[in-house]
Simulated assay, not measured.
Amino acid sequence: MAEVHLAAGTLEYEDTGGDGPVVVLLHGVAMDGSLWRHVVADLRGEFRCVVPTLPLGGHRRPMKEDADLSIPGVAGIVADFLDELDLRDVTLVMSDWGGGQALVALGRDERIGRLVITSCEAFDNFPPGLPGSNLFTSAKMPGGLNFAFKLLKMKPMRRLPMTWGWMSKRPVPHEVMNGWFEPLWTNPEIRRDLRKYVLGVPPKEELLSWAEKLRDFDRPALVVWAAEDKVMPPEHGRKLAELLPQGELVELDDCYTLIPEDQPARLSAYIRSFLLTGKAVG
Results as ranks from 00 to 15, higher is better:
Met94His: 01
Asp89Asn: 15
Gly107Asn: 11
Met162Thr: 09
Arg158Gln: 03
Ala105Phe: 08
Pro55His: 04
Leu43Asn: 06
Asp42Pro: 01
Val74Thr: 02
Gly57Gln: 00
Asn134Phe: 15
Glu84Trp: 06
Leu43Gly: 05
Gly143Pro: 10
Phe149Thr: 14
Gly76Leu: 03
Gly98Glu: 07
Phe47Gly: 11
Gly45Ile: 12
Ser133Asn: 12
Gly73Glu: 12
Asp89Ala: 13
Ala139Thr: 06
Phe47Tyr: 15
Gly58Met: 00
Glu84Cys: 06
Arg158Val: 00
Gly165Lys: 00
Ala79Arg: 05
Val116Lys: 08
Arg61Pro: 01
Thr91His: 03
Ala79Lys: 03
Lys64Gly: 13
Gly99Asp: 14
Lys64Ser: 11
Pro161Val: 14
Pro62Phe: 02
Leu43Cys: 08
Ala79Val: 07
Leu160Gly: 08
Arg48Cys: 07
Lys140Pro: 01
Thr137Pro: 01
Val78Phe: 05
Lys153Pro: 12
Met157Thr: 01
Met157Ile: 01
Gly129Asp: 07
Pro72Ala: 15
Asn125Phe: 11
Arg44Asp: 06
Val51Thr: 04
Asp80Pro: 02
Val90Phe: 06
Gly76Ile: 06
Pro131Ser: 04
Cys120Ile: 03
Leu130Asn: 03
Pro62Met: 05
Asp86Met: 05
Leu130Ser: 04
Leu92Trp: 06
Asp80His: 05
Thr163Gly: 06
Pro142Met: 02
Pro128Lys: 06
Gln101Ile: 10
Arg111Tyr: 09
Leu56Asn: 02
Asp42Thr: 07
Gly144Met: 06
